[in-house]
Protein backbone atom coordinates (compact mmCIF):
# COMPACT_ATOMS: atom_id res chain seq x y z
CA UNK A 1 0.00 0.00 0.00
CA UNK A 2 2.69 2.50 1.05
CA UNK A 3 4.83 1.34 -1.88
CA UNK A 4 2.10 2.49 -4.26
CA UNK A 5 1.62 5.78 -2.38
CA UNK A 6 5.28 6.53 -3.07
CA UNK A 7 4.27 7.20 -6.65
CA UNK A 8 1.22 9.35 -5.80
CA UNK A 9 3.15 12.62 -6.17
CA UNK A 10 4.06 11.71 -9.76
CA UNK A 11 0.42 10.97 -10.59
CA UNK A 12 -0.70 14.30 -9.15
CA UNK A 13 2.07 15.91 -11.19
CA UNK A 14 0.73 14.22 -14.35
CA UNK A 15 -2.89 15.18 -13.63
CA UNK A 16 -2.22 18.83 -12.74
CA UNK A 17 0.19 19.22 -15.66
CA UNK A 18 -2.40 17.95 -18.11
CA UNK A 19 -5.31 19.86 -16.53
CA UNK A 20 -3.26 23.02 -17.01
CA UNK A 21 -2.39 21.99 -20.58
CA UNK A 22 -6.08 21.33 -21.30
CA UNK A 23 -6.92 24.87 -20.17
CA UNK A 24 -4.23 26.21 -22.50
CA UNK A 25 -5.34 24.34 -25.62
CA UNK A 26 -9.10 23.93 -25.19
CA UNK A 27 -10.21 27.19 -23.59
CA UNK A 28 -10.60 30.26 -25.78
CA UNK A 29 -10.25 32.87 -23.06
CA UNK A 30 -6.74 34.30 -22.87
CA UNK A 31 -6.75 34.83 -19.09
CA UNK A 32 -7.93 31.24 -18.64
CA UNK A 33 -5.05 30.14 -20.82
CA UNK A 34 -2.61 32.03 -18.58
CA UNK A 35 -4.16 30.48 -15.46
CA UNK A 36 -3.66 27.07 -17.09
CA UNK A 37 -0.09 27.94 -17.94
CA UNK A 38 0.76 28.90 -14.36
CA UNK A 39 -0.92 25.69 -13.18
CA UNK A 40 1.27 23.70 -15.58
CA UNK A 41 4.27 25.52 -14.16
CA UNK A 42 3.24 24.65 -10.58
CA UNK A 43 3.00 20.98 -11.58
CA UNK A 44 6.62 21.06 -12.74
CA UNK A 45 7.60 22.67 -9.41
CA UNK A 46 5.86 19.82 -7.58
CA UNK A 47 7.82 17.29 -9.65
CA UNK A 48 11.17 18.87 -8.78
CA UNK A 49 10.40 19.17 -5.06
CA UNK A 50 9.26 15.53 -5.07
CA UNK A 51 12.68 14.59 -6.43
CA UNK A 52 14.40 16.49 -3.61
CA UNK A 53 12.69 14.60 -0.77
CA UNK A 54 14.70 12.02 1.15
CA UNK A 55 12.96 9.66 3.53
CA UNK A 56 13.46 10.52 7.21
CA UNK A 57 15.27 13.73 6.30
CA UNK A 58 14.59 17.29 7.34
CA UNK A 59 14.81 20.65 5.58
CA UNK A 60 18.40 21.39 4.45
CA UNK A 61 19.25 23.77 7.31
CA UNK A 62 22.22 22.48 9.28
CA UNK A 63 21.55 21.90 12.97
CA UNK A 64 24.43 22.35 15.38
CA UNK A 65 25.10 19.53 17.81
CA UNK A 66 22.86 17.00 16.06
CA UNK A 67 24.70 13.94 14.85
CA UNK A 68 23.64 11.69 11.96
CA UNK A 69 20.90 14.01 10.75
CA UNK A 70 20.12 13.50 7.07
CA UNK A 71 18.95 16.42 4.97
CA UNK A 72 16.86 16.66 1.82
CA UNK A 73 18.50 17.56 -1.47
CA UNK A 74 18.94 21.36 -1.59
CA UNK A 75 19.63 21.63 -5.33
CA UNK A 76 16.09 21.19 -6.78
CA UNK A 77 14.77 23.50 -4.06
CA UNK A 78 17.14 26.26 -5.19
CA UNK A 79 16.10 25.84 -8.83
CA UNK A 80 12.38 26.04 -7.95
CA UNK A 81 12.82 28.92 -5.49
CA UNK A 82 14.11 31.14 -8.26
CA UNK A 83 11.70 29.72 -10.83
CA UNK A 84 8.64 30.75 -8.78
CA UNK A 85 9.63 34.42 -8.78
CA UNK A 86 10.56 34.29 -12.47
CA UNK A 87 7.19 32.59 -13.10
CA UNK A 88 5.19 35.45 -11.62
CA UNK A 89 7.18 38.02 -13.65
CA UNK A 90 6.58 36.20 -16.92
CA UNK A 91 2.89 35.70 -16.06
CA UNK A 92 2.65 39.45 -15.50
CA UNK A 93 4.22 40.00 -18.92
CA UNK A 94 1.60 37.72 -20.48
CA UNK A 95 -1.19 39.57 -18.68
CA UNK A 96 0.17 42.89 -19.96
CA UNK A 97 -0.04 41.54 -23.52
CA UNK A 98 -3.63 40.37 -22.84
CA UNK A 99 -4.56 43.85 -21.61
CA UNK A 100 -3.18 45.37 -24.80
CA UNK A 101 -5.06 42.80 -26.92
CA UNK A 102 -8.27 43.71 -25.10
CA UNK A 103 -7.69 47.39 -25.90
CA UNK A 104 -6.91 46.69 -29.55
CA UNK A 105 -9.69 44.17 -30.30
CA UNK A 106 -12.21 44.78 -27.51
CA UNK A 107 -12.27 41.12 -26.54
CA UNK A 108 -10.06 38.45 -24.99
CA UNK A 109 -11.81 35.46 -26.58
CA UNK A 110 -9.70 33.66 -29.16
CA UNK A 111 -12.46 33.14 -31.76
CA UNK A 112 -13.61 36.76 -31.59
CA UNK A 113 -10.04 38.01 -32.04
CA UNK A 114 -9.60 35.76 -35.08
CA UNK A 115 -12.91 37.05 -36.49
CA UNK A 116 -12.01 40.67 -35.79
CA UNK A 117 -8.59 40.44 -37.40
CA UNK A 118 -10.20 39.19 -40.61
CA UNK A 119 -8.97 36.71 -43.21
Amino acid sequence: MLEILGYYNYWVFALVLMIGFYAVVARGNLIKKLLGLSMLQSAVFLMYITLSKVEGATAPILQKGVEDQIYSNPLPQVLILTAIVVGVSTTALGLAIVVRIKEAYGTIEEQDILKASGP
Binding site: N9, F45, L46, I49, T50, S52, K53, V54, A57, T58, A59, P60, I61, S72, Q77, I80, L81, I84
Partner: peptide, 9 residues
Protein backbone atom coordinates in the same frame (compact mmCIF):
# COMPACT_ATOMS: atom_id res chain seq x y z
CA UNK B 1 6.20 21.87 -0.51
CA UNK B 2 6.49 22.22 3.26
CA UNK B 3 5.59 18.56 3.77
CA UNK B 4 8.28 17.65 1.22
CA UNK B 5 10.93 19.44 3.38
CA UNK B 6 11.26 22.50 1.17
CA UNK B 7 10.68 25.29 3.70
CA UNK B 8 12.26 28.02 1.57
CA UNK B 9 10.21 27.09 -1.48
Amino acid sequence: FFILDAADV
